[in-house]
Structures are given as structure tokens and as C-alpha cells.
Design a protein around this nucleic acid. Structure first.
Lengths: 230, 230
DNA sequence: CGCAATGTTGAACAAGGTCAACTGTGGTGG
DNA sequence: CCACCACAGTTGACCTTGTTCAACATTGCG
């Protein structure tokens, strides 16, 4: 498992408990700690944006619906990650939904106070901007992958991104337990296709399974699959 | 055709000629005007980031390669649009390429001066951040579309986005002339598929053609195609 | 005038999505 | 304690969509 981070994504944000553990009355009034149960929806597409969230504990999936049955998982957020920041700019409605995948504790800061903080702290807004820039790069890389990479490569890619973010347990499994459905939504494919390909990988000894958990066995071979032209 | 904008994407940027037409010696030293021919590459993936660009005139495509033969066009930039801003944050290499589609004149500002300006002007950095946020939303919407929307819908979507950005000529055609190849790359599909579907649309009287130019005839029917589940 | 690039069309093929049936598993109430 | 049900997981067969390949037409440009 990955070590806990020193602060949040926006180091020195001075807002969440991770960056500012000491009690600070000036901030405390605007900083709420909220808890959600596994599977609970924190907000959904179209909801009015009222604040921004920092994860203290647990895992959130940030996802976008397509009709009723299909979704694409844009990103997972774990301890120290920000989410809900997509509701900025002109739009005051969330363009995405957020759902707890594990029991979750977050720090919630309402927009007006957040904006005030941004205004007073150049370093902070610069970090936030850099964070957006990084997310944009990631998003556009994924766009290209969805457009041109065959499913097999997209699934490998999803696994590698998950391992990167959630690390590896002592037994060599990726540090997050996902339903196949969620893995499919993350890779931008279907349930059944994920199975077949996961199975194929197990047979080829590229990954190993333990219940729902997945462990990467042969990283180089997998990486090769990503590069592969159809 | 759309009217020219008052300033650039980042109104009040105080950098490009569009926002600051008067001669300003303090800025002039850092502001270069560059010209490119049709088809010329302004920068490509992996190039070192040295500056940021504002379009005075012409059209740029911002695209991402996949292997040698495939690309995905992320975005088009026209008068007043910024590009090259993806090279921010940790990465100092462009994650995308930029190519002129028409004879192009741009304003080029080198990074150190740009950063200095950002530092001195809260309003400016806030606008830049909002701009990133908006691009992120757009990018993630497109991600979902690429993952779940059938090709027909993606092509319609591409056409509507083009019309939104480049407006309509007096004869009712979208204000940009694209090769079928570029349209395909924008919609995330192939050449031949674009063709067949464009033909189908013409037969169904949803769009009209004049050479390579495309005009939207029946907007509601097209919009319906976007919503359509497979 | 000829060559290269771009456009046009048909046919074959394959990836992967859909559907349907079946299996295991855990929870619940009798 | 067991029978039942609901639901996630698993698998096979089929079929649609869209890509690929290949051949040919047209445009444009030196």
C-alpha cells in the first residue's frame, strides 16, 4: 500500500486537516468534516456546486453517466486528493458525479471561502492551476487512448494507472478492490469484455487473482501490449 | 462567420495585441509575432516548452499522435484562442502537437515572462485557471463520448462543436474548411467511416455540402442522434 | 502532362458489444 | 438450520459496427 501523503494534492492549501492539522478557528468555521457510507453518492451530475472536497480517508470514484446504464469513471480519489473542483469557472453545476467506494471521510469547504483563500494566496492558486493543467494532460491522453487503443491495451492501462495510484499490497496485489463493473467503466468497455481479457491475462501469466483483487505479474509484457498497434 | 472577439480567451491578459493593442515597450521585448504557412508544425509532442501562444489570425489544430498514422484532434484554435498552455506544471515537454491549418499569425510569449505576469496579476491567473477548468470539462465530456457514443453521434458532435466555434457563413456552411481526414481525427474515427456517414446525412437531408464545406440543415434531427442509445 | 495527394466506393473481416443462460454466494426469513 | 431469492460473477454464441484493404476516380499542382 502506498504511504500516506504529507498533505493534500495542493500542498500548503491551509484548508484541510492534512495540510493544517492544528486547530485554527479562522478556518474551522468553514471547514466541515463529512462522512459517507460505501456506495453513497456525494454529488451527482447537474447538482449545484457549493463547495470543494478533500479526502481524509476512503476512496471516491468520479464518474460521468451516459444514459442510465453506462458510465465512464474519470478518476479515483484517495487520501489527500481533491475532488469536486470541476465545478469551477462559468458552470455552477457539477459536470460529473462522485460516489464513495469505501467508507469515506472528507473535508468540505464552501466555495466563497475557498475563493477568498485563493485570492489571498498566490502559491495556492498557482498550485491549483498546475493541478488543473496536469489533469488536463491526463484527460487528453486518455481521450486519445479511448479513441485509438484497442480494449486490451485500455484495460492494461487502467490496471497500471490503478497500481500507480493505489500501490501494491505485500502480497503483490493492487491496493484497491474494484468490482469488474467499475474496472470496465474505468477502462471504457463492458463488463463481459473485462472478464475475458482478465482471464486471458491470467492464463498468459501476466497477472494473478485473489478474489476480486488483481496483481500484476509481468509488467514488461503488459506494457508491450499498450504500445501495440492493432 | 463569427465576429472577432474583443480580446483573447484570457481577457485582460495584457500580453497579446488583441488585449493590449497599444505599443508597450515593457511587454514588447517579450512578445514576438510569428507567422506560419499552411500545414507548418508549430511544435510537436515531446518538444521542450518555451512559451505560450495566442492566435492573431488563422487556424491551428492541436492534436495528439498515436503511432505514426493515427491522430486525435483535441481542439482547434482560432483568433483570440490560447494554445501551448498544456505544457505547464511539472512536465516541461508538450504533450500535444500544434499545426497550422491556414496561414497563421500568432503572438508568442516566453514562459519566464508569462509566469512573471501571472504572479503580478491575480485576475489573470484566475482567468487562466477558469480556462483550464473549462477545458477539463470539455475534455472529460469528450472522453465519455468517445467511450460510449456510437460513431454517428460522435461525428454529429464534431460538426456541432465546429459550428459553435467557427460559426456559419452567409450560405449556411460551417465556417471552417476541413479535410475529411481532419474531421475523422476530430471525431475519433476513420476517414472512410466519416465519408459514408456524411453521405448518409446528405441523403437524409440533415446536412448539405459545397465542396469540402459542410452545412447543417436539420439541427434538431442531428441533436437527436447524439442522445440516441445504441 | 503526369504524378501525388485526396476523395469515393465496395467487400471482407474482426473486435467487441449484446443477449441469454448458468453458477456461485451471501443474506433473510421461516 | 435450511430453503429461497437476489444479485454479482462467468461463460458461450451471435451479430452489429466500424475498421481495413484494395481498387478506382478526381483534384490540384509543378
Amino acid at each position: 500500500m502506498k504511504q500516506n501523503k504529507a498533505g493534500c494534492d495542493l500542498k500548503s492549501c491551509f484548508l484541510c486537516q492534512l495540510c493544517q492539522p492544528e486547530w485554527n478557528p479562522a478556518i474551522a468555521a468553514y471547514r466541515k468534516t463529512l462522512s459517507y457510507k460505501k456506495g453513497e453518492v456525494i454529488f451527482k451530475e447537474g447538482d449545484l456546486v457549493k463547495g470543494i472536497f478533500f479526502v481524509y480517508n476512503g476512496i471516491v470514484k468520479v464518474h460521468k453517466q451516459w444514459g442510465t446504464e453506462k458510465e465512464l469513471i474519470i478518476r479515483f480519489a484517495r487520501q489527500g486528493d481533491v475532488f469536486g473542483h470541476r465545478g469551477f469557472g462559468k458552470e455552477t453545476y457539477y459536470p460529473i458525479s462522485a460516489t464513495a467506494l469505501e467508507p469515506l471521510t472528507v473535508c468540505y469547504i464552501d466555495i466563497p471561502f475557498f475563493l477568498t483563500t485563493l485570492k489571498m494566496n498566490y502559491d495556492f492558486i498557482f498550485k491549483l492551476m498546475s493541478f488543473y493543467a496536469a489533469e488536463l494532460q491526463e484527460s487528453e491522453r486518455n481521450m486519445r487512448n479511448l479513441a485509438h487503443m484497442p480494449v486490451k491495451g485500455r484495460i492494461v492501462n487502467a490496471l497500471l494507472r490503478l497500481q500507480e495510484k493505489f500501490g501494491v499490497t505485500s502480497e503483490g496485489f493492487i491496493g484497491i478492490t474494484l468490482s469488474r463493473q467499475d474496472l470496465a467503466s474505468y477502462a471504457g468497455t463492458t463488463y463481459e469484455t473485462v472478464f475475458r481479457i482478465i482471464n486471458e491475462f491470467v492464463e498468459d501469466n501476466l497477472i494473478k487473482l485473489s478474489g476480486k483483487d488483481i496483481g500484476i505479474v509481468n509488467m514488461p509484457k503488459l506494457e508491450q501490449l499498450i504500445e501495440e498497434q492493432p
